[in-house]
């Protein structure tokens, strides 16, 4: 049903991505691909996988940007996946009801059994989070690992999205952003987590934590400024009593 759920649980499951520690390793992207290749939306088809123009369905892609110049310049690695928006037009534009937002946790999904592959939702998503599978003729996307996060066949600790559990730099956090007391909500508050393209008013659930400003070390005492010659410098050490 493409109308957004009127009464929702208040639960807003999503990701918080820390651009301050993301090293751009693509682990989350590939692990996502791997998990989901056999998961809820399987397969994540690859066309011409060994050919000249290989292309495939990915739910998560890692960009690299440079921002600013000179000493203020930075390189920032930037993972991009579905933000599970609160008011996502990708859902409301869908003519078939295949696209939907779950009332119970806010996860945005596609029902592949009814998707006609009109691609309109991918036009409606500002973030490029929808992935058309040419082979199946259906739209696919990040499921927030719905087949992991509630999976009773998995140990409790493993009930997080694949991208989160694999990130070597601990740059991805998962939780309920609807709960102001959740760890992710606290992180967003403490670190100034922000929305992508807030001007479009899709109200993304996923948040990004900005690169931190560089820690200023306590003004270290300047080292001896005086120019001293080698001989007198050495003299300082002659009388030092040290014990082995």
């Amino acid at each position: 049903m493409t109308a957004l759920p009127a009464a929702n649980s208040g639960k807003k499951l999503g990701l918080v991505i820390d651009l301050d520690t993301c090293v751009g390793c693509h682990a989350c992207a590939v692990n996502c691909k791997q998990w989901n290749s056999g998961g809820h939306m399987a397969p994540l088809t690859d066309t011409a996988p060994y050919g000249a123009d290989a292309a495939g369905v990915w739910f998560n892609r890692i960009h690299s940007f440079e921002a600013g110049e000179g000493a203020a310049g930075r390189t920032v690695h930037f993972p991009r996946s579905c933000l599970h928006c609160e008011t996502p037009a990708c859902v409301t534009v869908c003519p078939t009801g295949a696209s939907y937002k779950r009332a119970e946790d806010g996860i945005v999904l596609v029902n592949e059994a009814t998707c006609i592959g009109c691609k309109l939702c991918s036009w409606a998503c500002p973030y490029g989070a929808r992935e058309f599978d040419d082979d199946s003729g259906t739209m696919k996307k990040c499921t927030l690992c719905i087949d992991r996060i509630y999976n009773t066949n998995l140990a409790e600790v493993d009930r997080v999205p694949a991208c989160v559990s694999t990130c070597p730099a601990n740059a991805r956090h998962f939780g309920d952003l609807g709960d102001p007391n959740s760890a992710v909500s606290r992180l967003v508050r403490e670190r100034g987590g922000y929305d992508l393209m807030p001007e479009l008013d899709y109200k993304p659930v996923n948040k990004y934590l900005p690169p931190r400003s560089r820690p200023a070390l306590p003004p270290a005492k300047p080292l001896a400024p005086a120019a001293i010659d080698t001989a007198s410098a050495l003299l300082r050490w002659v009388d030092r009593a040290l014990s082995r």
């Binding site: 693509h26 892609r61 960009h63 940007f65 921002a67 110049e69 930037f78 922000y194 690169p211």
Partner: peptide, 16 residues
């Protein structure tokens, strides 16, 4: 990207 706070934003590398 939300990176405007740092300065002008340029793509260095696309994901693929």
């Amino acid at each position: 990207t939300g990176l405007g706070r740092i300065g002008a934003v340029r793509l260095l590398d696309a994901p693929h």
